[in-house]
Design a protein around this nucleic acid. Structure first.
Lengths: 142, 142
DNA sequence: ATAAATTAAAAGTCAGAGAAAGTCAAAGTT
DNA sequence: AACTTTGACTTTCTCTGACTTTTAATTTAT
């Protein structure tokens, strides 16, 4: 049961094995799963949506394909940019505003936000805080 | 014995036999107890509430399910214990040992461990560090 | 040998049927 | 009065198939 989930998983696995961009043959894939081709469309439109960070491109006719692209969230770029923007000092309010931004952009979750807030609030020294902020960015960047 | 109580007991038993997370088919379970499906909802909403430490997730349609998650409270107990064990001062080595312990026990993940380490390393002051440790525990406990 | 026409090979669309779970109010119990 | 049971109705999700559209490949005509 749950063919759609199996299809989703296969696509995700393929995306992980590559650089986040794959091309599939709709009919082939439907065949592999013993389902009707339009079910592939169903899976794609219900799970690989733009809101979830996917881009779909396709072409019909002989040698057609469906291309699924997982948007590489510019997370690291975003973080890098900030990393270099931090000066020698960092005020607590500016720091917390940035953290809220990270949270809003889903780069960190609520728990991480709390931990980071603690780390940033542990000193009055804005030089030290800038340093801590840099360490945090590196930690979050993985 | 009331049917609802029997259903509750079965769910609790299932939760105890697993890691505190189960998935049931609402209609199947209703069938087992010879009741109407909506009675399962009744049991869940009246007994497996968030206040009692349960999380409910579900999905409709073919292959649907109701997932019941029992929040592992022992983690919080564990954290509580440490929270009260922290004295006025906390040396960096003791603090980091504790963090490693949390990581080993899967209460925090690697990324959180990094963030916590940063927070704990931001001062030379063992009084302040004890305070930070307490804040961290509260943040992680939710 | 090209251009046009045809055929074949994809992928897309959409609506309907079916499979679950959710809701809520009324009726029954304790 | 509070809790339990029931069932009619709703909503969401999945699967299917007939039909359409687009593109490539092939054949035919000039």
């Amino acid at each position: 049961m749950k063919i759609s989930d199996a299809i989703q998983k296969m696509i995700e696995d393929m995306l992980n094995e590559t650089d986040g961009i794959i091309e599939i043959q709709r009919n082939d894939m439907a065949n592999k799963f013993g389902c009707v081709p339009s079910q592939i469309n169903y899976v794609i439109t219900s799970r690989f949506t733009p809101e979830r960070g996917y881009i779909i491109e396709s072409r019909r006719g002989g040698g057609g394909y469906v291309r699924i692209i997982k948007k590489q969230i510019h997370k690291n770029e975003y973080l890098m940019h900030f990393f270099y923007a931090i000066g020698g000092e960092l005020e607590i309010n500016a720091a917390l505003a940035f953290v809220n931004n990270l949270y809003a952009n889903e780069i960190i979750n609520e728990r991480e936000k709390k931990l980071i807030t603690i780390a940033l609030s542990c000193t009055e020294n804005n030089f030290l805080r800038a340093d801590i902020m840099r360490q945090i960015i590196l930690a979050v960047m993985k």
